[in-house]
Nucleic acid binder design. Sequence first.
DNA 1: ATAAAGTCTCCCTTAACAGCAGAGTCAAGC
DNA 2: GCTTGACTCTGCTGTTAAGGGAGACTTTAT
Lengths: 270, 270
Amino acid sequence: MYRIGLFSEITKTTIKTLRYYDEIGLLKPTEIDTFTGYRYYSTDQIFRIYEIISYRQIGLSIKQIKEIVLGNKSIEDVLNEKKIELIDTKNETEKQLSQINYLLKERKEGFIMNYKPVVKELPECIVYSKEMNVKNLDGYFAVIPEIGEEVAKANPTLKCIIPDYNFTRYLDGEYKETDIHLEYCQAVDKIGKETESIKFKKIERAKAVCVMHQGAYTTLNKAYAYLVKWCEENNYKLSDSPRESYIDGIWNKDTEEEWLTEIQFPIESK
Amino acid sequence: MYRIGLFSEITKTTIKTLRYYDEIGLLKPTEIDTFTGYRYYSTDQIFRIYEIISYRQIGLSIKQIKEIVLGNKSIEDVLNEKKIELIDTKNETEKQLSQINYLLKERKEGFIMNYKPVVKELPECIVYSKEMNVKNLDGYFAVIPEIGEEVAKANPTLKCIIPDYNFTRYLDGEYKETDIHLEYCQAVDKIGKETESIKFKKIERAKAVCVMHQGAYTTLNKAYAYLVKWCEENNYKLSDSPRESYIDGIWNKDTEEEWLTEIQFPIESK
DNA sequence: ATAAAGTCTCCCTTAACAGCAGAGTCAAGC
DNA sequence: GCTTGACTCTGCTGTTAAGGGAGACTTTAT
């Protein structure tokens, strides 16, 4: 019979760990002195602790090990479960590595952008929308309030969702400065009555990589360029038309520098 | 100014997280009502929280993000640091996956071994040793006590280390049943006086994959076979002669079934 | 005015131990 | 037999990055 210190040296396991395994019932010492509380381990226990360490080394959690040791689950089941976890972890790690390498590369090349791309889930929403072909964007923004008025006239009880979500989708599939095919969308609480040019539709949830752009719209193309490159380098594919969502603009901020726009690129992993 | 709930929906961040970032000083709301304690966020904060989320997505810890945001460390430094961490994680994950796949394969093929391989660090130690060529192992174990006596005679103050560590190294580099070239080693507390056949030496620390073997020595070859295969399948290379360390044996256990031996294969990653 | 929804602080929980304090125990040397 | 030093015990706190819930208070809508 070994006391805990010796047993810990033999098995190369810390005393803390042994006491912890005792506490959670994973490995009880063969004997505990009733008066002193000293733990005594026998050589059989070396076997048991080795089994546990072996499982810990392949990444199993204590919970999973308990399930195996207590016979509640078959080893295969637990291993397969863990395998899936590990594959997820690996994919996650590789994505992070790719993004970090991209950031480092950017900075090495002196191409330092202050865009902070964020991958997030865009929830499903109902929008009213109007598709248009415009010569250029100058006149476009003046049209938007008119669309709102037209919809309100046909649908007096319709409400925008809170927080507000309105955006432009660029439908050309490539960057254009003139003759732009686009669609204005405004998220609302329900499907309403359509007019000749204004249609209602449900937009499905989507994963998207997004950046915030601060400043005048003339520099938005930088944000687009950034996202296009980011997707390329990190192995994502655009799965839908990009959205340009307006947060702060001429309607609530005086100077162009304060305008805030979010560019959203719906994506799927390649 | 947005209240926390709205801000949380805009930024797709939970209220809990926002409060937590406030608490730890990573993102304080622009304004907090002194009477009600209500937090109010401005649109600028969207930028700030996006930066944080972006860094969280590439796996940076809150601590690392703080260092970047507070300007204590350059982004490059933190990214490079994280890159190393990620590469470690990736290697670790891949090793675990390899081991799990091996275990699953084993079981699929019905080749179920109860060996639980454990990779551990064998500490540096001083040993006295005797190299021998023996016909077979039958007579070998009887010789060991004699070696001990011979050393004790030449070195009266020499002591074995606690816990005891004595082992046989097989020097042939292949499995043999007869004419075996081997070396007996016993770890002691210091270098002593050598005799004609008994030498002292320091054995360097080494990483080794180990299994415990219970039972008679005649079945030890199964443990060897298991470790050889394990190394092959998990991409490890034997970096030194295997060791066979004796824990329980004829000297303290009556029946062969109780004997306990640890096989240690020093390894390096291929 | 009342009800519903939103927000506040405070405390507990997670995983797998590590570190420390203060008290008790064991073995060796004198 | 006594002292000293090494060992061990329990119990507490800390770690990460929040999540969950209780009970009190505030705001908004009807």
